[in-house]
Design a protein around this nucleic acid. Sequence first.
DNA 1: TGATCCTAACTTGTATGGTAGTATGGATCA
DNA 2: TGATCCATACTACCATACAAGTTAGGATCA
Lengths: 246, 246
Amino acid sequence: MSAKAARSASLPDAAQLSLSEAIAPQVFRALRAAIVTLRVQPGQGLSETDIARRFGVSRQPVREAFIKLAEAGLVEIRPQRGTFVVPITSRDVLNAQFIREAIEVAVIGELASRTTPALIAELRRLINEQRAAAAGDDWPAFLALDETFHRTLAEGAGRGQAWRTLEPIKAQMDRVRYLSFSGASPLPQLINQHAAIVEALARHKRTAAEAAMRRHLREILTTLPAIMAEHPELFEPQHRLPATAA
Amino acid sequence: MSAKAARSASLPDAAQLSLSEAIAPQVFRALRAAIVTLRVQPGQGLSETDIARRFGVSRQPVREAFIKLAEAGLVEIRPQRGTFVVPITSRDVLNAQFIREAIEVAVIGELASRTTPALIAELRRLINEQRAAAAGDDWPAFLALDETFHRTLAEGAGRGQAWRTLEPIKAQMDRVRYLSFSGASPLPQLINQHAAIVEALARHKRTAAEAAMRRHLREILTTLPAIMAEHPELFEPQHRLPATAA
DNA sequence: TGATCCTAACTTGTATGGTAGTATGGATCA
DNA sequence: TGATCCATACTACCATACAAGTTAGGATCA
């Protein structure tokens, strides 16, 4: 397979861009979404010129979007060679999971002693919406509600900024999460875990809340091997080369 | 004070750039170092044209460096207005401290059960070097050794990548740390805290190691008020405006 | 037939010109 | 004297052109 052939796969973009906002961040978000939802797959090449043509803009804003994607660890820019979507590696996923668990468990620990009835009500409302989404097998909606649930926890603890810091790290896990919903989706189990967290919070049981959050966030560790076996072409065979890790 | 006057303060750069590496990352590192060491102070404006002239390069790589600085939270790009070094805020420092504590405590927890004699020896060696630096009042050297100490802990736990993830977040604290050494430097205390961590690790006392690390990383919380009182001009008066937070 | 070299078509990186928007300072008018 | 308006000099942003490097493939020669 030539490099040319590896490039021009389906990038269903050419979306209309808003003129009131700068172009570069719009391109960045569009590409990030395309990568996270695996519309562009690991190993695929992204050419500045090509993307610029599709969006009808110049290379410069596309280039800036590439740089931000590289910082998020979603693409690798090889100078004078090309820019490529990085494969999913268990190493990166495990690292992201470790960081997320450390931060979110700390958030829950703080929140247990300062939670309010209003917050509990809000969280329970979100869980009900999640059940509705699960009943309709609308898992994109569930993903959005899951995001809101965790963000609400962080903001309730006064750590909204920590959640924002976490977002780029989460991107590494998001591709795997997306895959995990393609097969049999264990939505009810995840929702029950959410409920367990909220119940522990409602009773101000700090240790129990921390344990429930930890269990919840470690779910991906159990599903990861099966996903790797199911989609080996999306993962790096062993581990990424340390020399080219930039 | 006019905007023009606020800009052209001392930027002791114009350093020679390597030709074997891309320009943009070099400019980024130079500017980041200048900001973290407060050679360029909060509120100061950075002009693409001005910086490009000083380095003898074009505006484009400078612009890319600005974007990366903005992602690190060190500057704020206001479209069509200018790029400004953001003031230090207790909010950002506290957020960075929270995240760092969550991650490093988790790292120490893992390390306590898997530490090796070789690692303990390495850590003790680093502490001895730190004592030597403290004896000579060489606190820039101490800062480098401190960095190495924490990174060694993370790598010992097999979480080197988590440490790299942490680095951009740490930048927010680094300016405060730099200030804390300008006055009376409590180097011996910090070194004793390092020693306490290593001793707990050597005895595989997980809870004690976690507590020692927590105590160590919370040091900045106690020194922060004094530093804010000493350098009020470097801090945002109350809190940053939420509207302009991009 | 086979290996080698060279050319051409890519890639990212840098430089420069031009545009739209903002802020500042002076001129104008009350 | 004072406030308002406008021209000018900035700013970041985008488009385009050029440069340096890499890769692939075909032509050439043994």
